[in-house]
Amino acid sequence: MSEVTAPMAGKVIDVKVNVGDTVSEDDELIILEAMKMEMPLVAPTSGTVKEIKCKKGDSVGADDVLVVIE
């Protein structure tokens, strides 16, 4: 199991996967906006999305867990 955490504080502007989706390594999961820049957060490993802990429009802090992949 691996967790995708926010690398920095920012705002979630898009969630590109749903719970149950199969993803492969480096697939985009979430688009985070920090300092007026959009940054895709990618899957660290291949697997299935087990849990999504944020939604579009959320403000998140550094190190918050956003997605859990199994």
């Binding site: 920095m8 480096d26 895709p40």
Partner: peptide, 12 residues
Amino acid sequence: GSKADPKNYLLM
């Protein structure tokens, strides 16, 4: 940086 490794976040 993210072109070399999409999992690398250098902004901060």
